[in-house]
């Protein structure tokens, strides 16, 4: 689904991931705000955007750990009440990032956790997307991640288009050229 030009895919890779450097690195002190020199020591804990952490991970320079949106507390909250957890605030690209992260971290439960979260949030919020009016749905909308918002939008826009057609109005659009008066030509 993710294509090279998919802006959501690009933005999802901007999310920060806590990593631990396995090797000392020179000249990249700007990645670690707490470092006094221009170097990063072995064992330093730094937050890096996913695209950088991923590259370093494949070269075994860093070990990724789990960002806060997948920690134990969030899992507990989602198990308690999936529909009312504010995932947008924690990580807009919760599902996209989770999918990318799952094969790389030691925690094997992320994949099934994502499915569990999506399944239950779908039941509570999204399956009502067609009929819920805009006013009623603004509140839950602020809790949704990007992927869920796209779903909601798809449902509501198709319903809105249908309602517009049913109410009717002019069936034919008058082409703009027809109404205009012809300009008197100079010749």
């Amino acid at each position: 689904m993710a294509s090279y030009y998919d802006i959501d895919d690009i933005l999802a890779e901007e999310e920060f991931i806590p990593v631990v450097f396995q090797k000392a690195a020179t000249g990249v002190g700007l990645l670690d705000p707490s470092s006094e020199t221009n170097n990063i020591e072995q064992g330093a804990k730094v937050e890096l955007p996913f695209w950088l952490a991923h590259e370093l991970h494949t070269r075994q320079a860093v070990v990724m750990s789990i960002p806060s949106c997948f920690n134990q507390m969030t899992k507990k909250e989602i198990q308690a009440d999936p529909g009312s957890v504010d995932l947008r605030n924690r990580c807009q690209y919760f599902y996209e990032l989770g999918c990318k992260l799952a094969p790389m971290v030691s925690d094997r439960t992320i994949g099934s956790f994502l499915l569990y979260a999506f399944k239950n949030r779908y039941k509570e919020v999204l399956s009502k997307a067609h009929t819920s009016t805009f006013i009623a749905s603004t509140k839950p909308l602020t809790l949704l991640t990007k992927e869920e918002t796209h779903l909601c939008d798809a449902a509501q826009s198709s319903m809105a288009a249908f309602k517009k057609w049913r109410i009717g109005g002019s069936r034919f659009e008058r082409p703009a050229v027809l109404g205009k008066k012809r300009k008197p030509s100079d010749e």
Binding site: H130, H150, L151, A154, A155, S158, M159, F162
Partner: peptide
């Protein structure tokens, strides 16, 4: 047609 975009994405 109304439910198509939503169902496909889901």
């Amino acid at each position: 047609n109304i439910v198509r975009p939503f169902v496909v994405r889901t």
